[in-house]
């Protein structure tokens, strides 16, 4: 049926590239744990939010790993039809929208009218006290 038609499904796997991808992923995973173990408490820097930087580094590392997994192990890089990539990436767009809008709610309750949160406060008072304690010294 399909003979005489020089179509080949998918891409041909290259074991050399695969090996490098695997090694790269392991290095990134080790790096992630390295970021986590960084002894930032001991550094004499207080003009920078090192906790935030640590989180951002870990996040960037995770995103890189996801990119490599999707690109090479799932084969998104080799897809000839752009559509597959569009479909696969568009859900990240939807999720970003979801996150941003949910945060626009939770992060901004009472931003315009401070009495608003007093009326509708789902947080228990005990947690609020804990939050205040949390804000003062870094853990």
């Amino acid at each position: 049926m399909e003979h005489g038609h020089d179509y080949q499904p998918g891409h041909t796997y290259n074991f050399q590239i695969l090996g490098r991808v695997y090694a790269g992923l392991l290095v990134l995973a080790a790096l992630m744990i390295g970021f986590f173990l960084m002894p930032i408490e001991r550094l004499p820097i207080d003009w920078l939010d090192l906790h935030l930087i640590k989180r951002l580094l870990i996040l960037a590392d995770a995103i890189t790993m996801v990119g490599i997994i999707a690109g090479f192990l799932m084969g998104l890089k080799y897809e000839k039809t752009k559509l597959n990539a569009v479909i696969f990436l568009s859900n990240f767009a939807f999720l970003t929208i979801f996150l941003l809008f949910v945060m626009a709610d939770i992060g901004m309750r009472g931003a315009m009218d401070p009495s608003f949160t007093k009326q509708l406060n789902w947080k228990s008072p005990v947690t609020e006290e804990n939050n205040k304690m949390q804000e003062a010294p870094a853990p």
């Binding site: 049926m1 939807f94 979801f98």
Partner: peptide, 29 residues
Amino acid sequence: DLEQEFESQKFGMWLFMASEIMMFGALLV
């Protein structure tokens, strides 16, 4: 033919993965 079959199945697989990611993504949110 084989081309139509494979490309359809591959496309379906990507869609399925996209929906899985929506599910886990919402959980992460």
